[in-house]
Design a protein around this nucleic acid. Structure first.
Lengths: 112, 112
DNA sequence: TCGTCATGCAACAAGTGGTTGCACAACACC
DNA sequence: GGTGTTGTGCAACCACTTGTTGCATGACGA
């Protein structure tokens, strides 16, 4: 009954800095390590390492253009990640609901 | 437009071992570091550290009973975590949809 | 050609997730 | 009550991740 989750994909979006990077890439279309680091509180090198992680799990795609290296979000892979988030979320949600129903049933049976 | 997320809460459920621990605690009602470690591929001490993390962010509640220390999931806090997952998920989902719509619009305008 | 700018690589510090070993407190049983 | 067993807690240690700084290199523009 445990949800099957791709741990690499999940932990890739688990890092707050990487989530903000994905947000930036989504809203601006594309970006480089340098351009992203300008609007994040970390250095270009840290951003570059995060981009390598995102690249490894396929969440971004790389395009070298002259001397810069541009990154774009891979829609399909991010959609997979979103699907996993909602899968785990709804699994927990279902269990919480069941627990709540049981608690209410117990309460009702005690009220009589 | 960026989703406000409690990074501590998110990173607490970001760890695969902690997610499995939450699953176990939800299905079995409660557990101790020892009982959880028996059905996980890590040592009791590792489980104890994870329980400390979950306790710090309020995802579990602690009850000392004799010489053992029992943990239960805090429903309200897990519900908050679930809400955050679905919030981020749907924010990304919305952006992906908008990008898809724009791409389709461009395609249509080029077809004419 | 020469300066500038984006990237890549290496070394380092701090935090996290894991281990083992040991000490200690509580329970069970004689 | 004493003794063995069992659950926790603490400390040291290792590997990996996330961040830093410093430097080398390669491409672009004047």
């Amino acid at each position: 009954m445990t949800v099957a989750v791709d741990d690499d994909l999940w932990s890739a979006v688990g890092d707050p800095t990487r989530r903000r990077m994905l947000d930036l890439l989504l809203t601006e279309g594309e970006g480089t390590a340098t351009s992203l680091s300008e609007r994040l509180p970390v250095t270009r090198q840290a951003v570059a390492k995060h981009l390598a992680v995102l690249d490894r799990v396929g969440l971004v795609r790389v395009t070298p253009v002259g001397r810069e290296v541009r990154y774009r979000v891979d829609d399909a892979q991010l959609a997979r990640a979103v699907a996993q988030l909602s899968e785990v979320g709804s699994a927990w949600d279902a269990r919480l609901r069941r627990i709540k129903r049981m608690a209410e049933a117990i309460q009702r049976s005690q009220e009589r």
